[in-house]
Write a protein that binds this DNA or RNA. Structure first.
Length: 329
DNA sequence: TCTGGAATAT
DNA sequence: GATATTCCAG
């Protein structure tokens, strides 16, 4: 943690331009000493693996990043092994061509990942370098799920949401955390053992970790779900008081309620949501439709939503208010 | 822009 | 199932 590469530091410098793996290989190819070359490759592999660990929790949301990282790691490892065993120059062309070689109609359709690893891969590494495994793996990470992609795009297109604007400091309900960037489904198709063994799909890789970090950060920011607002009793009390001042839940509007509540960080959306729920409860427990028993429930304590507003509306003009804040909800 | 209602997420 | 968030239409 202490040794964060300069490209990964938070103080983004415009002078930094992420390298492509092609340029990296060019760089490596200039190194004459085989051990130096291998060392450089291994170092890079370690960085990639570290990067992969970072996004591991979000792999379901970032399948492409995972694949790209996998591809790069495998390619680099192979290159490293080749350097050691045959003492030959890296084959740059493997990473340069952008067109598919053959038999991969799938990649043409998605237009995102292009795998062009050569047949020899299956000879070199006896693991999952065949198309069948590749397809299985890709489908297992839901890479080609159209609905999913659409939902992601939709989120990316939608206006930026407020992030973590809650000021109440309540414990979140339902296990929600302060930062819920993604659905952290860890049932990713590739487990750590597979990954460590290099059982991944070889292919093309265009970005280096720093760029991935930036993408990841941006993606994280844009897909993060707003922190769940906890309506504490005190907050709900203010809400109800505002309702009463405005003449009841049916005439009060979110904006006015929020202004009357005077709570820092409280948004119209939150008030609106609370109001919606409030009205819903009120409708459900409305005296006009509820049985006497239900009314009793309302009066006796389950009336978290009813009591004040009910009084407020039924006794409009009257100043009698039983200030019995209820909640939290 | 604001609002209500509904869908969706937690 | 309850509650909060997000989306959508008016």
């Amino acid at each position: 943690m202490g040794s964060v590469p300069p490209e990964l530091s938070l103080d983004f410098r415009p002078t930094f331009v992420p390298k492509t793996i092609t340029s990296f290989f060019k760089e490596v190819s200039l190194i004459g000493n085989v051990s130096d070359k291998v060392s450089k490759l291994d170092t890079f592999v370690k960085r990639l693996e570290e990067e992969m660990r970072k996004i591991d929790a979000f792999k379901r949301e970032l399948p492409l990043c995972m694949i790209l990282l996998n591809d790069a790691i495998v390619a680099l490892k192979e290159e490293s092994m080749q350097c050691m065993s045959r003492n030959v120059e890296p084959v740059l062309e493997e990473f340069i061509p952008l067109k598919n070689k053959k038999g991969s109609s799938q990649s043409e359709e998605d237009g995102a990942l292009i795998t062009n690893k050569k047949e020899k891969d299956s000879n070199n590494s006896g693991n999952c370098n065949n198309n069948k495994d590749k397809k299985t793996w890709m489908s297992s990470v839901q890479l080609w799920n159209t609905d999913r992609d659409c939902s992601i795009d939709r989120k990316l297109d939608s206006k930026q949401r407020n992030i973590g604007d809650s000021t109440q400091g309540c414990k979140n309900q339902g296990g929600a955390t302060a930062c819920m960037p993604f659905k952290a489904d860890l049932s990713f198709a590739m487990n750590h053992v597979q990954r460590d063994q290099g059982q991944v799909v070889p292919g093309q890789f265009l970005l280096l970790p720093p760029m991935l970090s930036q993408i990841f950060g941006l993606y994280h920011q844009q897909t993060a779900r707003k922190q769940r607002r906890c309506w504490s009793p005190e907050l709900h009390c203010r809400f109800v008081n505002a309702l009463q001042q405005l003449g009841g839940s049916q005439v009060a509007t979110p904006k006015l309620i929020r202004e009357l509540m005077q709570v820092d960080g409280l948004t119209n959306d939150e008030v609106k949501s609370h109001l919606q729920k409030y009205r819903l409860h009120r409708r459900r427990l409305s005296p006009s439709t509820a049985s006497p028993a239900n009314q009793a429930v309302v009066v006796l304590g389950a009336g978290l939503w009813m009591s004040q507003d009910q009084q407020g509306e039924s006794s409009k003009g009257s100043s009698s208010q039983s200030d019995s804040p209820q909640g939290p909800l």
